[in-house]
Amino acid sequence: MPQFWLEDFIPQLFWLVVAFALFYLLLSRVTLPRIAEVLEARQSRIASDLDKAERLQAEAREALASYEATLAEARNTAQTLLAERLAGVTAEADRKQAALAERLQKEATAAAERIAGSRERALADMSHVAAELAQSAVERLIGVRLGVAEARAAVAQGGGGGG
């Protein structure tokens, strides 16, 4: 076997050591750092992109939260405004109704007073008429001319005594 030809050992050893030393130096100093650089650049790029994405996501979440807060606030404001208006309107209506009721009450009272006045006046007229009637009746019946005062007292008495 040519593999065991001893005279070929030393030249192979020599060139292998020389070539491998050169190869190792070239790879470890130049080639491998260059590849590592490319891989690291990608790694850091991916990391920074992930970072950015995370930041943007946080921002979006924040924006959504603030939007929701604004919306809730607006809804609240609307509700209070509505309630206020409703209260105002109700109070106004109540007030108007009360005023109306008062006015009606007043009118009713005035009307009652008027009626009472009229009745009194009518009654007074009636007793006057009755007294005159009584005067003339007594004059005609017995020829006695009653004084006005007497006739009135008699009418008042008769009226009071269940006439």
């Binding site: 005279e7 070929d8 030393i10 030249p11 192979q12 020599f14 060139w15 292998l16 070539a19 491998f20 050169l22 190869f23 070239l26 790879l27 130049v30 080639t31 491998l32 260059r34 590849i35």
Partner: peptide, 24 residues
Amino acid sequence: LDASLSKAAVFMFAAMAVVVLFLT
């Protein structure tokens, strides 16, 4: 030292050159 070139030395360098060139 006997450092005679041979097929072995040539192919050693060839393999290493291929690696370095390919990677670079």
